[in-house]
Design a protein around this nucleic acid. Structure first.
Lengths: 161, 161
DNA sequence: GGTATTGCTTGAGATGCTCAAGTGTTGAGA
DNA sequence: TCTCAACACTTGAGCATCTCAAGCAATACC
């Protein structure tokens, strides 16, 4: 039995044959690789590591307890302590004790934190320029399809207890 | 002047109004986060870190010199040395001296490396299950749109000199 | 009330990552 | 040809990231 062929399999280049799932996964991998590079570079202009910027990105939507941050960033809770420590030292983020559960600390973006993550996103030129080449219906389609495949689960303000 | 509103701005939920660029970037960020979590978890089942798995993913397409790997993974070249060291120690990857440029070492997937990265992709259940909910035209649309926004630049076998 | 669970922190150990410096190779110009 | 700049890779220092195990305080459940 021969080794598996390299991805992507030589097909689905003409736009008529629907891509196989492997081809789609391969394209997702490539797309997110480029997105990540763009994001990392933009974060570096604010002297932030990708992890720190990702934390700001998640908090841009809504405050969240440490535990929720760990879940959203797909890492161990103990990891978040250090990341939030460094963000707090730079006053991009604030720990606020939960009024209803004294174990919990809610992490909140400061105004400086808001400005910083917005600036980072505005500096993702590779991604932003590429989005400029889409017309309205294409943007709507991409937005909708991504929402279908990656439902964010953030249906309302985060559970800050 | 009030602080910027949280993302996403309360619009574009009905599918008729095209999303703003900020909303699209926000959705990309969310989608990327979920994809990355899925990928990280799948890589962990093979005892690989995300960076190691990402390197395999890039090499799945074609061998590449260390320098090209650094560019594709958007990091310093000195970083690649350690990552490839660990992958080579596990025999998932091989360094081959370039026949035409003795400075260059081409990194090649071993068969075990191929099997491993294919297994990781096959274990990305969250992503794969979501793709199952798309019909053929939707898959084609997503594939095409991602290709438009994130052209991978890998138009043929990698330049292995 | 007693006990398990939860949220967060700490410390150890490995990896990821950047920067500066060093080695060996290539290539282009005097 | 000789010289020297540029390039590919490696090494080492220093910090950030990440996991795991352990521990503390607060809460939840029986």
């Amino acid at each position: 039995m021969p080794a598996n062929p390299p991805h992507p399999a030589p097909a689905s280049q003409d736009g008529t044959t629907p891509p196989s799932k492997a081809e789609l996964v391969d394209r997702l991998a490539g797309a997110f690789g480029l997105y990540y590079g763009d994001f990392t570079l933009a974060a570096a202009t604010e002297s932030l590591t990708p992890s720190q910027a990702k934390a700001l990105s998640v908090l841009r939507y809504s405050p969240a307890p440490m535990r929720a941050l760990a879940t959203l960033l797909a890492c161990d809770a103990s990891n978040i302590t250090g990341i939030v420590d460094r963000l707090e030292k730079r006053e991009l983020v604030r720990r606020e004790p939960s009024p209803t559960d004294r174990r919990v600390k809610n992490v909140v973006l400061t105004v400086a934190g808001e400005v910083t993550i917005d600036a980072i996103r505005a500096r993702m030129h590779t991604t932003l320029d590429a989005l400029d080449t889409l017309d309205d219906s294409e943007r709507t389609a991409l937005f909708t399809l991504l929402g279908r495949v990656f439902p964010d689960g953030r249906s309302g303000p985060e559970n800050t207890r």
